[in-house]
Simulated assay, not measured.
Amino acid sequence: MKAVIVAGGKAPDKELFLREIEDANYLIAADSGVNVFYKYDVCPNVLLGDFDSAKHEAIDAFKEVEIVKFKPEKDFTDSELAFKHAIENGADEIVLLGCTGTRLDHTIANIGLLKSALDLNIKAMIKDENNCIFLVSKDTVLQGSHGQTISFQAFGEKVGNFYIVDAKYPLQDYSLEFGDGRTVSNEFIDKSIKITFSSGTVMVIYSND
């Protein structure tokens, strides 16, 4: 089951929003993410959060929808609460929108949700108009178009024996650490790139300007 969470970061544009919800089974508005559903006239399955930044007219428009309200003083972000709610309702694929933006602390915490999903064998991605971010813990073939930009970072511990195959800038038997600039802005030269590694977790970032 695919769940789409819209959180309170930079709002997705209409094209991205509609594309992601088209095949979704469960839609979650996390706090001011409800403003996005209201703007694009789409009804979510649930409203969730402390609603400290949600527009009153947006909440009122969906007053018949299930609302799960939390106090502002809590141990989890609204995005994490929405993530947990999606899993509790059977999601095995989660797309996170509105999870990047001006608040770097929230962005980092949201990337942490990708690790939680990976540990649970749940497919999860953070998407905005310029980026698609996800984590992999095993050898992976990645699809793309000629010239498309892709970058790699170690998530947490060092990634051992890292190889990039069939990319513009191939790499062999490399010890990849977080923050390494060598694996930024690689490119597809054909339809696929293969990455292999012996240990660690790789953060994959498709990006465009």
Score class of each variant (00 low, 15 high):
residue 2 K to T: 07
residue 4 V to K: 01
residue 4 V to I: 15
residue 6 V to A: 09
residue 6 V to D: 10
residue 14 K to H: 14
residue 14 K to E: 15
residue 15 E to T: 15
residue 15 E to W: 05
residue 15 E to H: 10
residue 17 F to C: 06
residue 20 E to A: 07
residue 22 E to S: 15
residue 22 E to Q: 15
residue 37 F to A: 00
residue 41 D to F: 00
residue 53 S to Q: 09
residue 55 K to P: 04
residue 67 I to R: 03
residue 68 V to N: 01
residue 68 V to M: 02
residue 69 K to L: 01
residue 70 F to Q: 01
residue 72 P to L: 04
residue 74 K to Q: 01
residue 75 D to H: 11
residue 78 D to N: 09
residue 79 S to M: 12
residue 80 E to W: 05
residue 80 E to I: 04
residue 84 K to W: 01
residue 85 H to V: 13
residue 86 A to P: 07
residue 88 E to P: 07
residue 89 N to V: 06
residue 89 N to D: 07
residue 92 D to P: 01
residue 93 E to H: 09
residue 100 T to D: 10
residue 101 G to V: 03
residue 104 L to K: 03
residue 107 T to D: 08
residue 109 A to P: 12
residue 112 G to V: 13
residue 114 L to Q: 07
residue 114 L to Y: 12
residue 117 A to S: 12
residue 118 L to Q: 02
residue 122 I to E: 02
residue 123 K to I: 07
residue 123 K to Y: 00
residue 125 M to V: 07
residue 126 I to H: 08
residue 126 I to S: 10
residue 128 D to H: 12
residue 128 D to C: 11
residue 128 D to V: 13
residue 132 C to G: 09
residue 132 C to A: 14
residue 132 C to H: 07
residue 134 F to Q: 05
residue 136 V to G: 02
residue 138 K to G: 07
residue 139 D to E: 13
residue 139 D to M: 00
residue 140 T to L: 00
residue 140 T to N: 01
residue 141 V to Q: 11
residue 148 Q to E: 15
residue 150 I to M: 08
residue 151 S to M: 09
residue 158 K to R: 07
residue 159 V to I: 05
residue 160 G to M: 12
residue 161 N to H: 14
residue 165 V to N: 08
residue 166 D to S: 14
residue 169 Y to E: 05
residue 169 Y to S: 09
residue 171 L to N: 03
residue 171 L to F: 02
residue 178 F to C: 06
residue 178 F to G: 14
residue 179 G to A: 06
residue 179 G to D: 10
residue 181 G to S: 14
residue 183 T to Q: 03
residue 183 T to L: 02
residue 184 V to W: 01
residue 189 I to M: 06
residue 193 I to D: 02
residue 194 K to A: 07
residue 194 K to Y: 01
residue 195 I to Y: 01
residue 197 F to G: 08
residue 208 N to A: 13
